[in-house]
Design a protein around this nucleic acid. Structure first.
Lengths: 327, 327
DNA sequence: TTGAAAGCGATACCAA
DNA sequence: TTGGTATCGCTTTCAA
């Protein structure tokens, strides 16, 4: 700033103000400063800013995996929604593990974020303690946390699954199997499984068969293998309810290889409204959980928080059934 | 620190050293300082540390889009490879735009990263200037930059495409069309297009027809639409060479809807060895560009750099043809 | 509309 | 083994 000030013939203070767009600096001076700063390749040192103002400008975010189109979409919505606020996102990946989450949260908190966004509502007690001690706003997203640490933006997995099961039942499917990740390796997946079981029960359907597709993250290959594992037993089923669209797609293709006609012989459903569900032929019946919108809403909540709004928000973005050709 | 120093009757300097475990401070003093700091509820200010030492512990990373399995995989490899080094990744998304890249790079540099990793080797002159001025190691990845700013870890798009075209030619395919993003909207895509054209030329194949699938990022839907756009003209082609697997998958499904037999009537190839290429039925011929390994190698290069190794590294991770059922 | 001074909390460097 | 001093780059505050 001193260098820029020297070149434009003003004080560093004026440069500081000009760069922040302070209107008490004349428009002419502001333009001059901006231009010279650019030309000189001046880079604003936000560390010094953080140091001086005691505000880090960071929002910490944890996701189970960035290699998942849904979480990536939420992150993008959040990122877009925060554009222009000067907030920067600090991303940490938990690999679907609460232990890894603890480690990641600790790392993120060390950077003094002004808020933290956690994907998922299940945490170790130690993690909860850390978060409480940090004294910063916490937003839990995706799942509607039962015992929230602060704000919540998400949807009900059980609700979403209930929509799927009802659609299946209306189409005369009774004998369902659920394909998801191993018990305990993915809390969201478990919520979906329970949702399916509950919905089937309330509709008076036979007991849902649960098929373990392996540890999270589960994807296309896992859907494929789950069907292979089922083998001929698949003939006794009316529908495969899958924990996600990639899993459903893998299952679908394996069924096709086995000569099973979809949906005549068997219905298949997914979750998450991934691109593959639409493009696949037949297209896959799924649920849109509005991943991008979750991110956007979180950005709004954060803006409210930074604007001084303090009472905890609880936002259900809902879910929408997307009918495809697999039911 | 001053307060702690006063209480233990030492200087702030000694407290600083004691807290860092500096052995030049007597063990007795260290213990005393630690205990008093704890009791007084002293919290170390890492921002001040970063400010003073000018070491942020950050490595900045730009990607065109995080919603892309390949880049996400590279990011994961990098993240895993850096675990335990205390380095934290700062992610910025450029949306495939060099203008957005400039903005993102500026934002990232403002956090004083100790190194910066850029996906892609094409930048605005202003961005290059900014990077040079920053005086930190630069690693350009994915593309083998022709005029590198520092280190390079990637593969040759032209090489990879040449493998595809040779495979097609060996299977008697002569009339090729390339489906990719609009000119100028994706540098990697352009390199692939040029690679296809060059390879076809060197093999004496007829001129490659170029089909514009729209602005980057292009995905499944774009492949679908590109085929729709082609309409009956597709009957005069031997092969669709797609810029990525998702595009190829979209094209494949649209062909199926049109009653075109793959690969009997038409070959289709992808790029990137996405999961969908393997799971799709028929599986798609593609190229593995070792996305995760790129991330791993970058982590190694960074570790070398932080260990004092300074000469620029240039690493070609190569690419591997993956034969599927679509050729 | 602009500027001067002080200081955020830590540490590098030099001296004792 | 310990301490004094001078910053790092920015912004708050007060003054002109």
């Amino acid at each position: 700033m001193r260098d820029v000030a020297r070149v434009v013939g003003k004080s560093p203070m004026t440069v500081s103000r000009a760069l922040r767009g302070d209107t008490t600096v004349s428009a002419k001076t502001r333009a001059l400063v901006r231009q010279n700063a650019d030309e000189m390749g001046y880079v604003y040192d936000s560390t010094a800013h953080v140091f001086r103002t005691q505000k880090s400008g960071f929002v910490a975010v944890t996701v189970p995996s960035i290699n998942n189109a849904n979480f990536a979409e939420t992150f993008r919505g959040l990122s877009d929604g925060l554009e222009g606020t000067g907030m920067q996102l600090l991303l940490g990946s938990t690999n679907y593990s609460v232990d890894k989450e603890l480690e990641v949260v600790r790392q993120l908190l060390a950077r003094n974020p002004e808020a933290i966004v956690l994907t998922g509502g299940t945490h170790l007690p130690q993690t909860r303690r850390l978060l409480e001690k940090a004294q910063i706003p916490v937003i839990e997203i995706w799942d509607l946390a039962s015992d929230p640490l602060g704000h919540v933006v998400g949807f009900s997995n059980a609700d979403a699954m209930s929509k799927i099961v009802h659609d299946l039942a209306e189409n005369g499917r009774r004998k369902l199997a659920f394909i998801g990740a191993s018990e305990g390796s993915d809390m969201r997946g478990s919520a979906r499984r329970e949702g399916v079981i509950a919905a089937a029960q309330s509709l008076g359907l036979p007991e849902v068969r649960v098929i373990d597709a392996g540890f999270a993250p589960v994807s296309m290959r896992h859907g494929m293998r789950a069907v292979q594992k089922l083998g001929q037993a698949i003939k006794q089923l009316d529908a495969l309810v899958c924990v996600s669209d990639p899993v459903a797609f893998g299952a679908l293709n394996e069924c096709r290889r086995m000569g099973i006609n979809i949906p005549q012989d068997l219905a298949i459903t997914g979750f998450g409204n991934f691109e593959v569900a639409t493009v696949s032929s037949p297209s896959i019946t799924t649920v849109n959980v509005h991943a991008n919108q979750i991110g956007r809403k979180v950005a709004n909540v954060l803006q409210d928080i930074f604007a001084g709004q303090i009472d905890a928000q609880w936002i259900d973005v809902g879910s929408t059934l997307v009918r495809g050709e697999t039911v």
